[in-house]
Design a protein around this nucleic acid. Sequence first.
DNA 1: GATTTTTACTCAGCAATTGAGTATTCACTT
DNA 2: AAGTGAATACTCAATTGCTGAGTAAAAATC
Lengths: 162, 162
Amino acid sequence: MKRPMHGYDVHKFLSSGLKGVWYVGMSNTYGMLKKLESDGHVSSVIEMQTNRPARRVFSITKKGTSLFEDWISKPVSNIRDLRVEFIAKLYFLKDLNLSGGERLVEGQKVVCQKILESTHLPTAERSEFNRLLSDFRTCQIRSILSWLEDCLKFLETSGNNA
Amino acid sequence: MKRPMHGYDVHKFLSSGLKGVWYVGMSNTYGMLKKLESDGHVSSVIEMQTNRPARRVFSITKKGTSLFEDWISKPVSNIRDLRVEFIAKLYFLKDLNLSGGERLVEGQKVVCQKILESTHLPTAERSEFNRLLSDFRTCQIRSILSWLEDCLKFLETSGNNA
DNA sequence: GATTTTTACTCAGCAATTGAGTATTCACTT
DNA sequence: AAGTGAATACTCAATTGCTGAGTAAAAATC
């Protein structure tokens, strides 16, 4: 973010960069911006234009910046959030040229590892069916862990800067 | 289902059997039943009791039965629905002692395979980052495919019956 | 006989999402 | 030069879903 943007630009940034990952509707974006503004994370001014409709320009506030930095540095706690939220973090990191990617991925590995262990151990593995269900998780998490290694490789090659 | 049940029983059936897979709140269950009733998939009668509060008994209708049978025989179209919806199908299949499990799993394999191919091929693989994103999918789907094999083994051993 | 758990349900209210609508400008065509 | 379609830029009403809080009695447990 950094620079101020119109809602429309925010929408383009999200919907084009996260195509196939996260579908964001136009009004969805504006809804989020409204929420963010009412919480004090962004502020907006109306940009007047002679004989054109006014447009609104959004800027991130100090509060918003610190929330963002906090968000982007922390791994997600649930496996289900990997596919959208974690990938969104990577996208921001890459597109805004931020550092801390390796930290994030390493942190995510730890979180996943812990979840994997907790899925594994406390089983007392009642029925066969329950084992099948926990195998699903195990399976998924292991494949994510191996993908996170790919992430690290990606970050190394694509020269992580700043 | 088959037999009529109180909303409370439906809730217990779902929340106990799908613990850790799908969290269903009490009011959530009643909300769904209300929706189902207004769509004509279940019907309910109030069971009067002398000096006790009345309870409502839900039964599945013909329309509901055919919807259910249709639902349970068809694989899910999106990968993200595997973790809850597909597993719910397996749970119903197992718990109601229905046949068609192998059919379902085989069908799901085909769907996943197709998604895997479509993720793979049309790539024109723009950036490295995009490749990383599509690797995530690929990785996930492959692990699901191997888990679906486990499902088949489970169905064979646990004597699938009429 | 007192407390906790289980059975059984309702409802108001909020948040999120969606679709539909509005209006202007720019690029491109014919 | 007029017309068309896509891109820019946004608003709003409505529905839907979801959640928490509340109610109340019976059964089990202490």
